[in-house]
């Protein structure tokens, strides 16, 4: 840049862009990272950061307390697998606020027409948003679990114990992923149908709450088979069912021989929500 050194005033007129143009995959990735940042209020006003970080704080405190108790008394209050179940209501609350933030807001502002006029397919938009929410919920659950893991590793003796700890932590991460996928798929589908955030949020919470009494009713009033199947009717108990099926423990939910059914219903529910989400974005006016 010799002329710049010589202090020549540059023509500040329009310059054509000669650089690379990355394709659809990059476009989807950009939308995904932008949405993931949006979920935690990054790059947004301070007001948008309050709620997500409040939930992170509460979940974090739970993890810190559990870790502290373990390091002092040696007693494991919550295992890695227990942790996602224990904070399930917080994850739902998080989704109830973040899912509308990710999709309802876009419906209302009309920004979809700006996305769809770019090298991005309508279904890409839905999938990127879903992946972003899954990532956000998974980080919400696993970040505090990492605190528990670090505390745990330093409180056990011997390599063998550390290795066991890693294995437990790994299954905890996988179970957290299952939580994240199911909760995200259901709440994002609901939010994608409602353009007002204040309306979408309570509907998301309700979707997870109203199903619980059905489970309770079947559990108390039904016969043995009804009791074993009762967990299928609510996302929360459905997840516990999958966990019990894959990692049976004493004193856990009685599934009878229906374990695989819990797995199948979970997969079907996620697939249905994701499928409907894509249909929704194929149809949406923009």
């Amino acid at each position: 840049m010799t002329d710049r050194a010589a202090g020549v005033i540059h023509d500040i007129g329009y310059q054509r862009y000669q650089g690379p143009r990355l394709g659809r995959g990059y476009a989807v990735g950009s939308l995904l990272t932008h949405s993931l940042r949006t979920a935690y209020g990054l790059g947004r006003s301070a007001k948008a950061k309050v709620f997500p970080w409040l939930v992170v704080g509460i979940v974090g405190v739970v993890a810190v307390v559990v870790t502290a108790i373990r390091s002092v008394t040696g007693e494991v209050v919550l295992s890695y697998l227990d942790f996602p179940d224990a904070v399930f209501p917080l994850a739902v609350l998080f989704c109830a606020v973040v899912a509308p933030e990710l999709v309802s807001r876009d419906l209302r502002s009309g920004v979809l027409s700006l996305y769809f006029s770019r090298p991005l397919r309508r279904t890409d938009y839905g999938l990127a948003k879903l992946a972003a929410l899954i990532g956000a919920v998974w980080l919400l659950l696993t970040g505090p679990m990492l605190v528990m893991f670090l505390g745990g590793v330093f409180s056990v003796d011997g390599w063998r114990a550390v290795w066991d700890e890693v294995g437990d932590f790994g299954s905890g991460l996988a179970y957290a992923a299952l939580h994240a996928v199911l909760v995200s798929a259901v709440s994002l589908l609901i939010a994608s149908l409602v353009s007002r955030r204040a309306v979408a949020a309570p509907i998301v919470v309700a979707a997870f709450l109203v199903t619980l009494p059905i489970v309770g009713l079947l559990e108390t009033a039904g016969g043995e088979t009804a009791r074993q199947l009762s967990g299928l009717f609510s996302p929360e108990t459905l997840l516990v069912g999958v966990r019990v099926w894959l990692a049976p423990e004493p004193d856990s939910m009685d599934l009878g021989g229906f374990g695989p059914l819990y797995g199948a219903v979970t997969v079907a529910l996620v697939a249905a929500c994701a499928g409907l989400l894509l249909v929704r974005y194929r149809r949406v006016r923009a």
Partner: peptide, 12 residues
Amino acid sequence: HLARVSGLPRTS
């Protein structure tokens, strides 16, 4: 953000 969705690398 919209420039990136159009395929431009972050800095550009």
